[in-house]
Design a protein around this nucleic acid. Structure first.
Lengths: 226, 226
DNA sequence: CGCGAGCTTGACGTTGTTCAACTAGAGTGG
DNA sequence: CCACTCTAGTTGAACAACGTCAAGCTCGCG
């Protein structure tokens, strides 16, 4: 299943970044990439290691997080079409975050030198990279705002809305993350995640059953998020 | 003092971004920029407004912050050589933050179209822009880490170290910001800033006298920052 | 069938915010 | 020049929010 010779030219999983590449540029990528399968819980990027590759997720969910001695902070749960590692372009030599598979993952690993090269030859690609960086900045700013201004229930509401709207795109979903992960996303104690989920459940805002969550009263969640 | 025809070619205040521009490219910038003087407390960028310009600070300190109904969050105190507005390149049409002058400011306002154009023609410039974006990401991540993992005294210690090491580059400085601003930097109540400054003062870690602050025991501050 | 990790619950203590009152200094107008 | 006002800064006490601790539960897996 995983192999390094999958043809980029006919890949229908391409990121919008790659849409306008010439056949020659796609060939360059193909020659400098491998497709890899990761199993659940495997580490894809380790914080602090040399940043020599860019990753493109073809299938599955990952968590992107900052490691810390006491506890981690999950920046984002990302899936299909996400590019990882752009934030190291031309800047730091080391990854500033870790990435772990939340389920079985298929991804393309591309050498950073090729990316740099194509950014020079292809203006559209270059623009897409900058867009991606700016979108990252916007996301982190939102997170910063959320964590610094909102209380526990608002933060958990935000997380649930994100799961429903963006990650699973369904008001009924089965979490790929533990309660502890939810705590790392919302920056609170695991116990508080449990208490609040129960509270939301009792108030008929959501329906919780283990990892299965259904959002019943979306507007109440939006209200909690303030 | 402020005028639009200052010559970019012979400007010795140039950001590293502009260092490798050709004479022709500098001429393009010159034709699409104005130099402006802002007085203390004037708004330079207003959150939500159209993002059609890039700003380059030639002189003076500004605060960059996210506005919020209840209270603001200061992202950075920036000064000479800082580029503002790059985070809107090719992405959002509106500024996601506000910028206000903390003292009298001289800056160059450059039309974003010229910046976009030069990013195509000059690879070095393009690389510098990406570096700048990535450095912004790193800064915000540090802030996120600080606010989410550290307690009040650690956060204030961080802020004081930043003022000493980066902003004023002197262990003795006169603050350009109010106590309330310090609170917006460290995400705490103004009262707590006052209490902690007093506590640090009593413990002979710093010496506070109104806006004048001297760092006496730097390593103790580093320790508090953990 | 038992072990262990993840989950759940309640009690309790700490941390940090809010409120209210007071002070000092800077600017304003008579 | 002196009241007056306004804002920034300061202080203490009460309170709420949140984290920690300890204990028990559940379920999957060997």
């Amino acid at each position: 299943m995983a192999n390094g010779s999958a043809n980029c030219l006919f890949c229908n999983n391409k990121s919008v970044c790659f849409n306008e590449l010439t056949d020659d540029e796609l060939k360059q990528i193909e020659d400098n990439k491998v497709e890899i399968l990761y199993k659940k819980d495997e580490t894809i990027i380790k914080q602090g290691s040399f940043a020599s590759n860019i990753y493109f997720i073809k299938k599955g969910l990952v968590k992107i997080y900052i490691e810390n001695s006491d506890r981690n902070l999950i920046l984002e749960i990302a899936g299909k079409s996400k590019m990882l590692g752009l934030t190291s372009l031309n800047h730091t030599k080391h990854y500033k975050f870790s990435v772990t598979a939340l389920e079985d993952i298929v991804l393309c690993q591309i050498n950073v030198e090729v990316i740099n090269k194509i950014m020079i030859t292809n203006q559209f690609f270059n623009t897409q990279v900058i867009k991606s960086l700016n979108s990252t900045i916007e996301k982190i700013l939102d997170k910063l705002h959320c964590i610094s201004h909102k209380q526990l229930n608002g933060r958990l509401a935000d997380a649930l809305i994100c799961f429903s709207d963006e990650i699973y795109q369904n008001n009924k979903f089965t979490l790929n993350v533990t309660r502890k992960d939810l705590a790392s996303i919302t920056n609170m104690a695991t116990e508080n995640v449990v208490r609040l989920l129960k509270e939301f459940n009792d108030k008929k805002i959501i329906k919780v059953s283990g990892k299965n969550i259904e959002i019943i009263n979306y507007s109440a969640l939006k209200e909690l998020s303030k």
